[in-house]
Each structure stands twice: as structure tokens, then as C-alpha cells.
Simulated scan of single mutants.
Amino acid sequence: MIGVSDASLRFGAMRVFAGLSIDVPRGRTTAILGPNGRGKTTLLRSILGFQPLDEGRRHAPAIVGYVPQHGASQAKLSGLDVVTMGRAARLGLFGQPGPDDTKAAHAALVQVGACSLSDLRYDRMSGGQRQMILIARALATGSDALVLDEPTSALDLGNQARTLALVSTLNRARDRAILFTTHDPNHALAVADDVVLMMPGGAVVQGPVAQMITPDLMAELYGVPMHWVRPDGPQGRIAMLPEFTGKDALCA
């Protein structure tokens, strides 16, 4: 399980959240949605222990698999080297990776389908390739908690689809708690069980994805009218889009 209990945090006069409790148990995936600047990353940092809380407490495993928004691209390391860095917390300050750590890194690369990136230099990878490496690094930790900060924010549509498919596969395994932030309600629809909405006025509401991803709540969250669409016809999968995308052409 990972989350916070009765947590409050302020930056000066700005309240980021107050009395907030979030529990993501093993086997569940939770998405955090909110407009720019609302504090999604700050909430993740609080859950990870990077940002001290003013009140309340965090609960998390000693080791958490974390995928930041942007991975530094200047590192002159191979993909395997970067993934192996996920074992660092298990090695101690002066420990060196051994055969078991290399084996865990290889297994993580296999899990994300990125074995071809093993020998490629990280600073020469595309954004999508780096994202697969960072997810593999998080998995190599062996933690049963995975935290991803806007994992598709810098990716093209194809790499967004691949990243979401990977998170969906990890979710179906039901063997870890997964928490991620996103701007897109369709990402929550695709992979999440539960949703946390950080509303513009300071409130935080949460519940099952079917109750949280609605046109009314999304319009309140983002300040634009939203509607359901079925791009593939009456029997197709539904999606949530702003009305400026063409309601008449794609309406459910």
C-alpha cells in the first residue's frame, strides 16, 4: 500500500491539500488528475517522502519504483546500466551490483519489451525509449509500489499508447500498487481503477473511475465543456473529449 493519511500541505498562503487521505493498495491502480499548477507532482513528492507534510503521515514501502516526468538525457550510460541503477537502494552506499542485480535489470527490460535498448546509450535514445528504460528501472527495484509522474506528458501518440498499454498490463497482474498523474481523463479510463481529482478551488475528491470521469466533473476540473464520444461507433469504446473537438461528428 502507498498513500497519505490526514495529510495537509501549504506553500505560504496557498493550500495544496488539507486532511487528505489516499490509499492505493496492492492490486489497484489510481490516477491523479488536475489542471496545471494544482499540485499533482507535489502530492506525489509528498507520498514519496521528498516533500515534508505540514500535517498527517505518509505510508509507503521502504523502496518505491518511481518514474519521474523527465529523465535526464545526458547520461552516457547504456540502457542496461540505467535500469540496473534501480537496484541502488538495495546495495547500500558503497555496494556494487552483482549477478542478481544484473538479472533483475534484464528481467525488467524483458517485462517492458525493451531488450533492444540494453546496449544503446541513454543520451542517444528518443523520449519514448527513455520512458521505457525509466519504467524498467522502476520495476527493477522489485518494489510492490510503482509511482509515475505524468508518464506520457512528453510522448507522441504512438509512445503514449505503448506506455499506457504497459501500465495496463502491469495493472492486470494485480501484484503491485500503481499511482500515476495525468492531464488526460482518457488515460484514467484506460488503465485506472480509482481516480483522485485535484479541483481548481482546492478541494480533492476521489472515487472509482466510473464515478469520477464524467462530463460534469471534468468540465469543473478543467474549465471547459466536456462530452462522451464513441469514435468507433455505437459498440465502440467511449472517450471523454472537450466539446471543441467536434461533438456532432463523434457524439455517443
Rank of each mutant, 00 (worst) to 15 (best):
P35I: 05
P35T: 10
P35S: 12
P35Y: 00
N36D: 14
N36M: 08
N36R: 03
N36Y: 13
G37C: 05
R38F: 11
G39T: 10
G39L: 09
G39I: 10
K40M: 08
T41G: 06
T41P: 06
L43N: 09
L44Y: 13
R45G: 11
L48N: 07
F50L: 15
F50I: 14
Q51R: 11
Q51V: 03
P52G: 07
L53P: 09
D54Y: 12
D54S: 11
E55N: 12
G56D: 09
R57H: 15
R57G: 15
R58M: 04
P61V: 06
P61Y: 13
P61F: 14
V64M: 01
V64E: 02
Y66K: 01
Y66N: 02
V67N: 10
V67Q: 10
P68M: 09
Q69G: 08
H70S: 12
G71I: 03
G71A: 14
A72D: 14
A72W: 00
K76F: 02
K76D: 04
K76R: 09
L77Q: 03
L77K: 01
L77I: 00
G79R: 01
G79E: 05
G79W: 07
D81G: 06
D81A: 12
V82T: 13
V83F: 05
R87N: 10
A88L: 14
A89C: 02
A89L: 05
A89K: 04
L91K: 05
L91P: 11
G92R: 04
L93Q: 01
L93H: 00
F94W: 15
Q96M: 12
P97C: 02
P97H: 00
P99D: 15
D101C: 05
T102K: 13
K103I: 05
A104L: 04
A104W: 11
H106T: 12
H106D: 12
A107K: 01
L109H: 12
L109I: 12
V110M: 11
Q111W: 04
V112N: 08
V112Q: 06
C115A: 05
S116L: 06
S116P: 00
L117C: 10
L117Q: 13
S118F: 04
D119N: 14
L120G: 13
R121I: 01
D123K: 02
D123A: 07
R124H: 14
M125V: 03
M125E: 04
S126E: 04
G127S: 02
G127R: 04
G128M: 01
G128W: 13
G128E: 06
M132T: 03
L134W: 12
I135D: 01
A136M: 03
R137D: 13
A138I: 10
A138H: 06
L139A: 03
T141P: 01
G142H: 00
S143M: 07
S143I: 04
D144Y: 10
V147Q: 11
L148V: 00
L148C: 04
E150N: 10
P151T: 09
T152Y: 08
S153T: 15
A154T: 15
D156S: 05
G158V: 11
G158Q: 07
L164P: 14
